[in-house]
Each structure stands twice: as C-alpha cells, then as structure tokens.
Design a protein around this nucleic acid. Structure first.
Lengths: 123, 123
DNA sequence: CTAATATATTCCAATTGTTGCATATCGTCA
DNA sequence: TGACGATATGCAACAATTGGAATATATTAG
C-alpha cells in the first residue's frame, strides 16, 4: 500500500455505486414510509417482478435493506436510515456554481510553481 | 410518463454514479483545501497522468469542478461544495443496523393483504 | 520555428451492468 | 398432496464502463 488516497474512498465509492441507479433510489424512497412488500414496490414502480427482485437483492447485499416474510408476502425495510441523508443531499445538488478559496499546499514530488517557490517564475 | 419513480431519481443516480469511484473521491478530497494543479493530484495519488486527466474530465463534465489555466499548469477547483456533504455522509455510513417503524400504505393495484384489508386473512 | 513540459483526448480490450426469459423455491389453500 | 401465488435466481445477449497505451494540443523557452 504505497499510495493511500484519502480514508475510505473505496467504501464510499461502493456505497455510491449501490445508490447509482434510479430504480434503487426509487425503491429506497418508497421505503421511507417503512416496510413495503415486493408486490407493492412492483406495482408502484411499474417494473417487472424479476427486475425489482434483482434490485432488491443488490440493496440487500449492500446491507441497506432486509427482508421479512409474512405469509405469502415478503416485506422489505431499510436498516440504514443514514442513506436518506445521502439521497437528500444528492437531491439538494442544484446547478448553483459556487466559488472556493485558493489552495495552500507544497509537495516536493511535484514540479509546479507552487511546489517549487524558490525557482519559481521569472525571479 | 406512466410510472413516476420518485422525484429526480435519475439526476440523483447520475450524481452518485459520478462519485462512485475511489479515485474521483480522492481527487475531490484533495480539492477540499481549494485549488490544485494536475501535477499535484498526480503526485499525491500516485497515478498516471492520463488516468488522472480522465477522471478530472469526468468530474468536469459533471460540473463538479472547473479548470483554470495558469501558464503551463492547469488548476482545478470544486464549484459545488455541496458534494462534500455527500462524501461526508457516505463516510458516516458505518455497519450499524438500525430498525425502522412499520409501513402505512394501501394500493389497489397490489394484491397483498395490506392492500386488500377487506378480504384479508382468514375472516 | 523547434524542443520540452503539462495536460487532454482518442482507441481498444477486458470487465461489468442491464434486461428479458425461464425456472426454482417457499408458503398457502383446497 | 397438488396447484397456485409471491419471490428469487440463473443465464444469455447486448450495452456501457474501465483503465491502459499512444497520441494530440497548448504553452513556454530558446
């Protein structure tokens, strides 16, 4: 491990990947109210059963939801409410370009002017 | 448009997709301080230049960062600080299974007991 | 103009995701 | 037990993405 790249970038990326799908997001939104059975989700989203089941499997594998059997139906519910913070934050992303203040870093393995201030631009 | 699936699920999915990559997350983390030139990013992350450039292009296309030329170097900076809320929220996602309260929805296009309470379980 | 440096873009092969179809599994009802 | 309803899973064809290599562009120096 010679080049670390922030902490938990991999895990974060995995989470984003799981959420990077409109149907999965829609399913999670449906589950905001609480438990829902598969047929419900199927009916509301208007997608084929097998497809919904697949997406549920992905969310289940990601440990974001879990299933509970009740007679003939299977109900799903979210076990990580924190994901809603993510969904909400994503929706909050509007086309509002903002500015950010300038940097302040120096690195010897980098040849840019900011990293070699001594032999910087025209003396 | 016969089956809506929440609001902005597509857009949100696109955002998550853009963030669903460890290198891109690492780059954004680097840019938390402010502007950084490509060679900096390259040196810090220890990846090939072309590769970094590709990831920057993706973030740029997503309108999350913009570039500014200064002589021979090109500096990038984040123009949507809100994405940090997303990154932080993702990192906050720990393996802590929580419980969620039961549902409360009824739908006529669904055959499950909760949707057909009248002809529900054994009368 | 030519060379050198910094960064971007294009091309490609390998991997991965998508989606329809068929089928398996499990519980229920008669 | 057998048929049926609700879900899950396996598979195949096709679309999209990924990361590497080579190459192109732009700026500065001489």
């Amino acid at each position: 491990m010679q080049n670390r790249q922030g902490s938990g970038s991999e895990e974060s990326a995995a989470i984003f990947k799981t959420l990077a799908h409109p149907i999965r997001i829609a399913i999670l939104d449906l589950l905001r109210h609480g438990e829902e059975c598969v047929c419900h989700i199927e009916a509301i989203l208007g997608k084929r059963q097998a497809y919904i089941s697949q997406q549920l499997a992905i969310l289940r594998a990601a440990q974001i939801i879990i299933d509970r059997r009740d007679g003939m139906n299977i109900f799903y519910r979210v076990i990580r409410p924190e994901i809603y913070a993510l969904l909400d934050a994503a929706r909050a992303l509007s086309p509002l370009p903002t500015a950010t203040p300038p940097p302040m870093i120096r690195l010897e393995s980098c040849p840019c002017p900011k990293c070699t201030p001594e032999v910087a631009v025209t003396d």
